[in-house]
Simulated scan of single mutants.
Amino acid sequence: MKTRILTTLAAGALLAAATACGAQSLDSGSSQAAATAPAAAPDTAALDQAPTEEKAADVINAITPDAALAAKVPAKVKTEGLKVVSSIGYPPMELYASDGKTAIGLDPALARAIARKLGVKVTITDEEFNSQIPGVLTGRYDFVISSMTDNKERQGQVTFVDYVRAGAGILVKSGNPAGIAGPADLCGKTVSVVDNGSSLAALEGYAADCTKAGKKGVDILKFPGDQEALLQVSNGRAQASITDYVVAAYKAADPKLAVEAIALEGTESPWGIGMKPDNKELIDSVKGALDALIQSGEYGKLLKAWNLDKLAVQSAVVNGGQ
């Protein structure tokens, strides 16, 4: 029933747009012309502007709505705008601007870009990570975009449109004096890492591989946080540090730190935009907008602005996680 209502409203909005752009009404006897007239694109001036501290602001503000995609947006989203939830505090994916309340980073940038491509306004709300999927399922939010891995367990709750592939990375000194290109080069080296989670597990696996191959093992230095682990590379105590690639790329973008980021091939998994599974119109709209941004090159520019080119996907895939 809800699907039928939304479809009817969307069709009505499309007819109204066709009439407003100069097509004759059905009452005039030119029903064919009205039915086939292209939809008018939403007024770009009425859309949200990106925050000035957003690195991709110029790219976002230049995005114009796709009339065909905008015509198919769910009626509620057309009137209320996109309601997006994220967990702010994981740079460069999500962080606050200097005012302490405006969300910037790749995830907010992509949310704003999708909204502009669909010709709607957008609000981005900060929520604790575990509250995000429940907020989508209750209808409080239209979608979650929060560095969320698309996997089978979460697919049991939401439908994902995958927007990047992210994995682990290695931080080394600028110029890579130790010549580290991958896990095999860590044998015999001192490597720092945060003392929990997937990065430590990966490093322990690489160390075990070194031993099995008859090479020198890895001297692992464990620390409570990324900053302490990074410091060991800066001060020369460690030749490398293992962390999430997005964190490594963010650190490498700061010239004062004098470090480089190396992606660890084979560790990538898709991160997705999560939506309520029965909200088919919205899923199709978001997938269409992301594909349009990829094809236009605007998506690539968003990633480049945040030094995250290596996360790029070639197309928008639904539930690509395993």
Rank of each mutant, 00 (worst) to 15 (best):
L231P: 00
G297W: 05
N176K: 03
A202E: 09
A207M: 02
A208H: 09
A258T: 08
P270V: 13
A97H: 07
Q314C: 01
Q239I: 10
P51V: 07
E204Q: 15
A208Y: 10
G12S: 11
D126W: 05
V158I: 15
C187V: 11
K78H: 14
K101T: 15
A184Y: 09
P177Y: 09
L26I: 12
A208L: 11
A292Y: 03
V233D: 01
G89L: 10
V313C: 02
L106G: 00
L82A: 07
Y90I: 11
S131T: 13
Q322D: 15
E54F: 00
I5S: 04
T159Y: 07
P51G: 03
P108Q: 05
Q227V: 14
F143D: 04
S234P: 00
L110Y: 09
A289D: 06
A248I: 08
I63D: 01
V84A: 00
T159S: 08
A68E: 15
A35H: 12
Q157D: 13
L26Y: 15
G214I: 14
P134S: 06
W306P: 00
A240D: 06
F129R: 13
G167I: 11
A70K: 06
T3P: 00
P92R: 08
A37I: 07
D219G: 02
E128I: 14
S146W: 03
R116Q: 13
A34S: 06
I63W: 11
T102P: 01
A35N: 13
D150L: 06
D254Q: 14
S87Y: 10
G205Y: 12
N235L: 14
A305S: 12
V313R: 02
I294T: 09
A13T: 14
G188W: 12
